[in-house]
Simulated scan of single mutants.
Amino acid sequence: MATYTVSNIYIYPIKSLGGISLQQAQVQERGLQYDRRWMLVDEKGGFLSQRKFAQMALLQVKLQENGLLVSHKQGLLDPLFIPFEHADGKEVTVTIWDDTCTAREVNGEVTMWFSKALGMFARLVYMPENTRRIVDPTYAFDEEVVSFADAYPFLVIGQEALNHLNSKLAKSIPMNRFRPNIVFTGGQPHDEDSWDSFTIGETNFRVAKPCARCVLTTVDQQTAVKGEEPLRTLATYRTKNNKVLFGQNLVHEGTGKIKVGDEVQVLQWK
């Protein structure tokens, strides 16, 4: 039996901006602490994404003791500090795909910074504790809630899956193209496809559905330049029902801490 070990943990505090690698993270009701609790929206409250605006990849987020520090990877603007205790702007209605929920604008000055950085109107909003966004009932197990993530609190990918993909590419790509929360080593490529439930530390996870991949994976996270890979190659061997699949979306039970080096204990296989 293969041994699986957590090798990387990532959070993306502001949806669709640069992620943060952590050695340990706190699992909370909506997912990992700080993960996608902030989001950029347009004038109508629709979420902004690298799918359409690749330049968002050039904004990097770092965790500070009391807030987030956002900087431009090309140094075009002075960094912006966003305190955790903030969100004193107006309440707004926001949309993530087919979901609608309430959020609160951080403040007008922050909106001006992001609008200048991206060259378009971009309002930063925060998800208050009293906002409840439910995971798609088709795949939820117990009305789990989620942050501003596309649909699920977690995404897991095995390092072997990326290694296998890179063996087929002319130029290797890093894991940041796929924006996982949990990466593990061990086993064979795509072993996670066969998992039904597993534990890391004190937290139980259940696999909801495979993750369908989009053009965001073709955006170089350092340069914001779009290409054709890895979707073109993935489509040759990871397509099902006209969707390219890579990684597994998860829901979870309970809270706790997960750490790099933790063993992934598979409880049930499909």
Rank of each mutant, 00 (worst) to 15 (best):
R104T: 09
M120D: 03
R104A: 10
R123I: 10
T93D: 09
T102L: 09
G89L: 03
L118I: 12
T100K: 15
R132I: 11
T95W: 11
T95Y: 15
M127F: 08
L124M: 13
R123E: 07
A122H: 07
K116R: 14
V110S: 01
E129Y: 07
G119P: 00
T131M: 05
A122R: 12
R132Q: 14
K90N: 14
P128E: 00
T100E: 10
P128L: 04
M112H: 13
E91K: 12
C101F: 11
V94Y: 08
H86F: 13
V106A: 09
A122V: 03
M127T: 02
D88N: 15
D88C: 09
V110G: 00
A122C: 14
R104Y: 08
E109H: 06
F114P: 00
T100F: 10
W113T: 01
W97C: 07
A103P: 01
G119S: 00
E129M: 15
T95I: 11
K90G: 07
H86I: 12
R123P: 02
G119L: 03
D99R: 10
I96M: 12
V125Y: 03
D88K: 14
T100S: 12
R132C: 07
I96N: 07
G89E: 05
T102C: 03
V106T: 07
T100G: 02
S115I: 08
R123W: 09
V106N: 01
P128Y: 02
V125N: 00
D88W: 11
N107T: 00
K90F: 14
M127A: 10
L118C: 06
N107F: 05
V110Y: 02
M120V: 04
R104C: 08
R104N: 04
T100A: 08
D98I: 06
